[in-house]
Design a protein around this nucleic acid. Sequence first.
DNA 1: TTATATTTGTCCGTATGTATG
DNA 2: ACATACATACGGACAAATATA
Lengths: 85, 85
Amino acid sequence: MAASEIDHDAPTPVYRQIAALIIADIESGLLVVNRKIPSEAALVQRFGVARETARHAVGYLREEGYVFTVPQRGSYVADRSAKSK
Amino acid sequence: MAASEIDHDAPTPVYRQIAALIIADIESGLLVVNRKIPSEAALVQRFGVARETARHAVGYLREEGYVFTVPQRGSYVADRSAKSK
DNA sequence: TTATATTTGTCCGTATGTATG
DNA sequence: ACATACATACGGACAAATATA
């Protein structure tokens, strides 16, 4: 996993590409429920993007119900198995 | 490639001339599927035309199925090989 | 207690690109 | 050619809460 996975010229926005990669990590079991996902700073480092882009990706994951965020602590993988949506 | 390729006195509308040149770039492989075509601003600069003319050219390419446009991102070369039309 | 590092929250501004009038 | 608006992306800065030493 590196910045090489990100294509800035692709039709899909960068933040969505990052979100898709994190979702893949969740669904593959690499990221576990109630455990932290990489911090914004880590995503910045790992994908070579601006912090706002990393935040946008996490915000998207939160909107989609994949993660929940605890201020000043981090974002955690949500339990979607028992969720109605 | 420059403004010299455009003939304002020709029977063919300028936007169609520009579209033809972009189609030529697509068919020659210079522009690749799912990759961005030059932005409107770039076309304005390159062909020495008004922005609306550049937009008209892109709109024509879109109608003809040569490109698809993603709002706020850009226009991309479409994959016509597997298309029914 | 103090200090430092981490992490999210919230602003600022700049640039690009399309959408619309 | 101009103005406005929105979405995306980058860069920087500071605050607040938390964790650790």
